[in-house]
Write a protein that binds this DNA or RNA. Structure first.
Length: 301
DNA sequence: AACGCCTCCAACCGCGTCGGG
DNA sequence: GCCCGACGCGGTTGGAGGCGT
């Protein structure tokens, strides 16, 4: 026996909502509150299924919906949270007041994802990464760490690259301070859900370096980074950085800053006349290391 | 003006999860 | 523990509108 349909298909209207239907739904919810979506259409006098009513309310009619173009800060937040959470649109929407999961999903699919892919950068996905590979000893011998390894994930970093990265990138300004993604613990429940991919992390290093802090304010982020830097590398200047003196330094994930002329190494917005290849090369030259044209993040590790 | 292509986004669909009985 | 209804989520679709030819 199959699943019973959420509504009687016969006589149920589909497609765009009319203003009369919107008014009926709004009036009913203002009077009785949302919920009990299955019986709501009948009680509200609507020829719709409950699912359709719930979607219309949550994505369009809700009074706290914020309309209009997403701000630069909101875009940065989306990119950063996507790097941590993946396609958890509702979780991302939970960090953006007034925005819906549907809106963010649409925005990602039509703007951000395309923009990053156009640059040859696969949006980093912490949720897809096997963080145990970070502890691969071969990484310690690298003379340079590719920026792509750093995107969205704590990594082994040369302090000089760290300094450069921190000077070029910033975290979104509206992140919640002290929301920590405790990704160092097996199956740890984070503020955004359970991270189950991280297992069997060896005890060879300081696990605290795998924290991914999320800041509410750029200045706070910079201050914390400075504190961490000073405590971690106080005896470790870029001048005496030796080949094998790599350290795990927790500095928060870094992200490419899009569409911010003042801070981004090159104009990366969609109005740019440069080609994606030019953008990528310019970007790489500024960073002084390669961003490969690899679409599978896992290949980088 | 007509046509075709592309973009955007509201809405739909199927499935997973949760909770009450 | 099982069943089933209700709900929520993420992927997908399709229509409207914009734009170039």
């Amino acid at each position: 026996m199959g699943r019973t349909p959420c509504c009687d298909k016969n006589g149920v209207k589909k497609g765009p909502w009319t203003t009369e239907e919107d008014q009926k739904l709004t009036d009913y919810i203002q009077k009785h509150g949302p919920g009990n979506w299955r019986t709501l259409p009948k009680n509200a006098g609507l020829q719709r299924c409950g699912k359709s009513c719930r979607l219309r309310w949550t994505n369009y009619l809700r009074p706290d919906i914020k309309r209009g173009k997403l701000s630069f800060e909101e875009e940065e937040t989306i990119i950063h949270l996507h790097s941590i959470l993946g396609n958890k649109w509702s979780a991302i929407a939970g960090c953006l007041p007034g925005r819906t999961d549907n809106e963010i999903k649409n925005y990602w699919n039509t703007h951000v994802g395309r923009k990053l892919l156009r640059m040859g950068i696969d949006p980093p996905r912490l949720d897809l990464l096997d963080l145990t590979s970070i502890f691969n000893p071969s990484l310690y011998n690298s003379s340079q760490v590719n920026l792509s390894r750093l995107l969205g994930v704590q990594s082994l970093v040369n302090p000089e690259i760290l300094r450069l990265a921190n000077s070029l990138f910033s975290l979104p300004s509206n992140f919640q301070e002290n929301q920590l993604c405790n990704s160092h613990v097996q199956n740890q429940l984070t503020p955004f859900g359970q991270i189950s991919q991280i297992q069997n992390i060896p005890t060879c290093t300081d696990l605290s370096t795998l924290f991914v802090p999320i800041y509410s304010d750029t200045q706070v982020m910079q201050q914390h980074n400075m504190e961490r830097l000073s405590s971690n590398i106080s005896n470790f200047s870029s001048q005496n950085c030796q080949q094998n003196e790599w350290k795990n330094i927790n500095f928060g994930s870094v992200l490419p800053t899009l569409s911010t002329p003042s801070s981004s190494p090159t104009s990366l917005n969609s109005n740019s006349n440069t080609t994606s290849e030019e953008e990528r090369e310019s970007y790489c030259s500024m960073l002084n290391f390669d961003i490969p044209n690899i679409l599978d993040v896992n290949e980088l590790l």
